[in-house]
Design a protein around this nucleic acid. Sequence first.
DNA 1: TGCCAGGCCCTCTTTAGGGCCTT
Length: 225
Amino acid sequence: MANSPKTFVFLDLETTGLKGDLPKITEICLVAVHLSSLENRVTDEAGQLELPRILDKMCLCVDPGKPITSYASEITGLSNNNLVKNEKQDFNPCLVHIINEFLSRQAQPVCFVAHNGFLFDFPLLKTELQKQEGTSLTSSLLCMDTVEVFKFLDMQVGIRRESRDYAQAQIYRRAYRKPPQNCHNAEGDVLALIMIFLSKADQILEKETMSNNCMRWGEISPMYG
DNA sequence: TGCCAGGCCCTCTTTAGGGCCTT
């Protein structure tokens, strides 16, 4: 990899449903962490890893303009009714501008990180962006999927991938011996994602792991549309 | 009519089937 990322932007989307529903985004959360905070980790008095103090955070709710499935509504707490009542805007050029400005404030290059990102978050975000004429993210932006990264790291030490559960909550439990908090709230999921990244940060940041597990934004195909 | 993801990976595979991971 020619240029190693200086900033990792952890990403989570809440949506109206899964792929079969041609989902739309109901909430987006981005949290940027500088490389130095991932390399120089902070622990509490008990020696437990802590979130870095310096975080740039952005969470926005979005009116999807289509029905949210009952299960998605139940787990995320977002309904068509409460999004409309709170007068949330749809996924529009203004939101794309905000995302771009958020990214441009970070030390470059930037790497997106999402759990199952290659199959869900990145393709769906690309679909939503493609609907907005004249808007895009820089194609040189890097993307990493922590499902693939954790499988890669396990394989390196001889753990067979089919012998483990790679759901984010399970990886969190293995690392911290307790369940993550605020699941299916975009910010809660992103903070848990940062914590699982921190638990293996040294290995993830190795050149071999990065070069084997990163794609460029330009290589991501839209989910649909 | 009723049902409905899907690309990827694994293995008791390859003329196939099943599970994963996200909301």
